[in-house]
Amino acid sequence: MSLRPQPTQHEKVLGENDFIVSKTDLKGLITYGNRVFIDISGYSEQELLGAPHNILRHPDMPRSVFKLLWDTIQAKSEICAYVKNLAKDGSFYWVFANITPSFDSRGNLIGYYSVRRKPKPEAVQAVSGLYRAMLDAERRAGDGQAGMKASLAVLHQALEQKGMSYEEFVFGL
């Protein structure tokens, strides 16, 4: 994979009537992306196919969000998350991602399917504040398990304060 794009302050916004669709295999390697995905990410279909999904990883995202994401989908459940993504040209775009596991006709897990929609601006505002706090905690605790733990603790504390589950929280925004 080529060098990561340098993040800029330029924001791209997903259309109200569009959604990004992508599919991955069990390891998170992209097996399909729709044209909206190709357009907004700035990568060609050839570049995307077979690439790991973290090609879009933005440095402002706390790692623990992706841990939560993977833990959930590997348990064959649905996850919804606000994600800040990095396009090929360094610009960013916020999405409300919904990832669900895919099964074959015999019920075996064969990959993951993701639909990403345009999030509400208020939700982005609330989430970016929370993510910043989580990222800070993560960095303060250092890398590895400790950082992950600290960052998740911030999330759980916020949820506890609201008296909500994670799902209730993201859908309530």
Binding site: E16, N17, D18, F19, E78, N98, T100, V115, R117, K118, E167, E168, F171, G172
Partner: peptide
């Protein structure tokens, strides 16, 4: 979306509505 929303609703999680955006 339909499956997710119904699954959630059947567990009493009515906040998870089906998203029609896109």
């Amino acid at each position: 979306e339909v499956f997710s929303a119904f699954d959630h609703a059947s567990q009493g999680k009515t906040f998870r509505l089906a998203m029609d955006q896109g």
